[in-house]
Amino acid sequence: MAKFFLSRRWRPNKWPFYILLGIELPLTVALLALFGIAAPNLYRKKLWQDGADNGFNSSPTTGLYAIANYKPYTTPKVWSQFITNFNVVIAVLSMFIMLVKSIMYVLHVFPPVLSAIVHAIIIALYSVSIAYQASSDTSDPLHPQNGPPWYVTKSCSVTRNKSLVGYCRQAKASFACTCAALGIFGIYFILAIWSCFPSKSQREEYEEAKRLQAEKYAGLENISDPKSGKASVRYPVPDTPGFQGGLNPMTPRTLAFNTLGGTKDLPLRSHFSTPNVQSTSPTFALRSPDIPRSPMSPGFVNRAGMEDDDTIGKAIELSPTSPGAAPNLYFPPPPKTSKK
């Protein structure tokens, strides 16, 4: 049985995510516009007062009477400044998350598990917004409001002040868009959770990848130390030329040194090398041309075409009498000035 793992691919394909993005984009723009227009207090207090005039809810002056009579008072959640600012913040945050997650999804760095976490947080924020927008107002015992505010449950034509009809429709649209956004994010979350569970084909690919990985490390051998008794891992030895006594790999540097080792114009190379030590690198039958290239080489021919013995000298004369004897150094005399 295959082990459980979280899939990194979306199911059933990539198009459901693009469809949800196409719906979320205009919805987020609408929320950002509606909440931005309503901030900080364009029509909240006006709708509150109009509802009090109709007897639907408490009055904005209820708090003043409570304070004057030394009674505790808390502004109802639906009419508080907090929910107005909170809606603006979550609208801006939703726009930012939508742009980021769309780019990450195109770049294949937005796995379902990350999507589930992100959309769970957004769902929690929008749930708080809906709970505040649809909360009740029971601060006035004479005019209690048990349930959502009047502009959500009633038609905007019931307003006392007819100039507030447009504001009533904006508040109604804000609440409707918030509920729609919560539904879209809920679909995101369900799709992400469903995609976290791998399909049958994904399980087969996972098993094949695990099998190839096991074959890759099959060459490792477990050996135990006879002294400590602990097990250790012996890694396979790479088949590299020149490793552990094999032939040296042929590189440009090796080829250059081997070529210089067989020339005639480097007499000091064999003289200063370690005695009785043979090189392990292979030798090649590469030799310099027989034509002398330096006045220090034997057989040098001058410009006149004649061999001048006075300008010829050996750099070093190797004449050891025994295998361990020191060589006799010979320094050639300076060349004489030629006479015309």
Rank of each mutant, 00 (worst) to 15 (best):
residue 13 N to K: 12
residue 107 L to F: 14
residue 145 Q to N: 13
residue 261 G to Q: 10
residue 98 M to R: 09
residue 183 G to S: 09
residue 19 I to Q: 04
residue 245 G to I: 05
residue 312 I to T: 09
residue 199 S to W: 00
residue 28 T to S: 15
residue 230 K to C: 09
residue 142 L to W: 03
residue 236 P to C: 00
residue 337 T to I: 15
residue 314 K to F: 09
residue 46 K to Y: 04
residue 289 P to W: 02
residue 92 V to L: 10
residue 313 G to M: 08
residue 194 W to M: 11
residue 23 I to H: 05
residue 24 E to L: 09
residue 263 T to I: 07
residue 267 P to T: 07
residue 103 I to S: 10
residue 206 Y to I: 02
residue 319 S to G: 12
residue 33 A to Q: 10
residue 135 S to H: 03
residue 132 Y to G: 00
residue 308 D to L: 11
residue 18 Y to F: 13
residue 291 I to T: 15
residue 37 I to C: 04
residue 188 Y to E: 10
residue 219 G to K: 05
residue 124 A to P: 09
residue 309 D to Y: 15
residue 113 V to W: 06
residue 13 N to R: 11
residue 81 Q to H: 07
residue 178 T to D: 05
residue 33 A to V: 09
residue 241 P to M: 07
residue 84 T to V: 13
residue 332 P to V: 10
residue 234 R to P: 01
residue 275 P to Y: 07
residue 152 V to L: 09
residue 210 K to L: 15
residue 209 A to M: 06
residue 173 A to S: 15
residue 322 S to R: 08
residue 160 R to D: 01
residue 231 A to H: 03
residue 138 T to S: 05
residue 296 M to K: 10
residue 121 I to K: 11
residue 90 I to Q: 02
residue 32 L to F: 14
residue 2 A to K: 08
residue 291 I to C: 13
residue 253 R to Y: 12
residue 255 L to W: 15
residue 169 R to Q: 15
residue 108 H to P: 00
residue 195 S to V: 02
residue 308 D to P: 01
residue 146 N to V: 10
residue 19 I to L: 13
residue 97 I to M: 11
residue 249 P to Y: 12
residue 138 T to R: 06
residue 132 Y to M: 11
residue 121 I to N: 14
